[in-house]
Design a protein around this nucleic acid. Sequence first.
DNA 1: ATCATCGATGAAAGCGGTTTCATACTACCG
DNA 2: CGGTAGTATGAAACCGCTTTCATCGATGAT
Lengths: 327, 327
Amino acid sequence: MATIRDVAASAGVGTATVSRVLNGYAGVRPATRDRVLQAARVLNYRANGVAKALATGKFRTAGLILPDVSNPFFPSLARGVEDAAHADGYAVIFGNADNVPEREAEYVGLLRDRLVDGMIIASTGAPAALAELVGDVPVVLLDRRVPGWRVSYVSTDHRLGARLAVQHLVARGHQRIAHLGGPEHVASAEDRLGGYREALLEAGIDPRAEWIARGPFSYESGYERMLHWIDSGLEISAVFAADDLIAIGALQACQDRGWAIPQRLALVGFDDTLLARLVRPRLTTVLQPAYQIGVQAWELLARHMADPGAPTSDVVVEPHLVIREST
Amino acid sequence: MATIRDVAASAGVGTATVSRVLNGYAGVRPATRDRVLQAARVLNYRANGVAKALATGKFRTAGLILPDVSNPFFPSLARGVEDAAHADGYAVIFGNADNVPEREAEYVGLLRDRLVDGMIIASTGAPAALAELVGDVPVVLLDRRVPGWRVSYVSTDHRLGARLAVQHLVARGHQRIAHLGGPEHVASAEDRLGGYREALLEAGIDPRAEWIARGPFSYESGYERMLHWIDSGLEISAVFAADDLIAIGALQACQDRGWAIPQRLALVGFDDTLLARLVRPRLTTVLQPAYQIGVQAWELLARHMADPGAPTSDVVVEPHLVIREST
DNA sequence: ATCATCGATGAAAGCGGTTTCATACTACCG
DNA sequence: CGGTAGTATGAAACCGCTTTCATCGATGAT
């Protein structure tokens, strides 16, 4: 692997000049510039990014930590981040925290050690502990606010999304609407639950405790909780699920027990992943623009990386209801 | 951010000793070791990974290039790679080539510049061009062999998988079996097509040209091709799709045109992604153990990183048929 | 008591870039 | 034609770590 010194020697100049040419600084005589370029080409020279990073303190690499890549929502988001980062010449190191806070912390440390220039974290656990780990690396947080930590956030208005979903069910004439919620202490899940409650109260419906069951954002969890409700004779006519995976699990449970959707039970999900369009009946759900959220997060991060003193901001993305066949 | 010099000064030793202690080399007096450890703790010291990489030539980071993260098969695979890498203390930088060969090449360059210790590439295009770009970084290739490039491979036996699928359809009494193939020049797609042909010939059926339509591995592509077949009156009773996404698109098309599955048309997919279980009727498909393939690829890569002279190997994974309701 | 041996340790030289700073050269001006 | 401002360039320091190699003191053998 050719080094900058090889190129310098081959072109008969100093390494400083090679560096100047290759980084496009003015003040190099055209003849010299050409010699350097030529030598670099001949030697098939590519600058060593690590050495560059050490010298400049910038690595042109960012970290992205996701709670669960198997949930189709996150690949879309990741792709948004990655496309935007890529356009800026940045690489993205991604870590899958697998919904385990320890693993998340581990990744943050790993990334910090790799000197990433910034991180985007879609946190699972309580990210307050992360603040210290992150140090002074610019960070953008997704879906979760940490009091006292001055970083930028981008988040969907989950509360609003949940209200849209429930209002839609109410408008369809439902009165007994249950909620298959997400895990506790996860901000998006909490907000969706809050929106569900609000919307019921607004409609003059008392949100009963037995209408709420919480659990992980997964197909299995949705399936089991719904099955349990059906088998225990819970009297409901509609369900708002905290995400599409849970909704689809529930849908499956209904089909296994012969509850027709939407006749016997109306069902609304959240996210609008590809899955929502694939299942039968197609799932009514709340759209969160995953890709754009990713792009947005990148833009914020890019700003903070360019100017560490830039004011933090708080981007709230509006969700929309997508009505399909399950309601 | 504290440096190794700060720790050395604080502990009253040289940087060499700090380095020795922190990397666990023997030959440091316990008293000294404790002083260093203590100082490191007080200063909240973490070694700068970039500097370490520059000094050692090892970054404990690997690259993973995937053609399309939206295809649920790849997140599973990625997770296998990542889990295994993580267990070895490696970080993985991943790149989404988006099925564009240029983008793939760009990523390979990006990774090489970042001095990754190794790469796992699930290539889209013709990866021969990559050989040069990669340089002497250890590589494991997924699903694709490049003549003359001495690297390790791991690949599912796509040909066998396709034969299992078609043999199953034949056993169910089908004679007019079409194939919704994957893109041209993509090894897995070619092999599956090959297996399809072989199985038909073995069954004494002549594989007609009009029974084969190729296109991208996507839902939309499956939908459109199937719709076109139905509308153009193609007489078939079964379809083997080159992957689950295509199969599910086709399934959708059938439902939109009132072709009952499996009565009017039997359908088999490939991959056994989560989707196959979610759609109705559930999809019969060929299982490829994505996660294990990822783990396997990592193990191969780890071997090559540890010993650049290690002999290359060629791991072939056996697929299995998973029979569900679509046949 | 003397000397060779050995273990513990630090100084310093890289790793491959960037960047400052001094210098050599040009060109322009009076 | 000398002086000066300005431009192009290279030497060398530096980024934070690892690692070699020399050194120093202690130990054990003679």
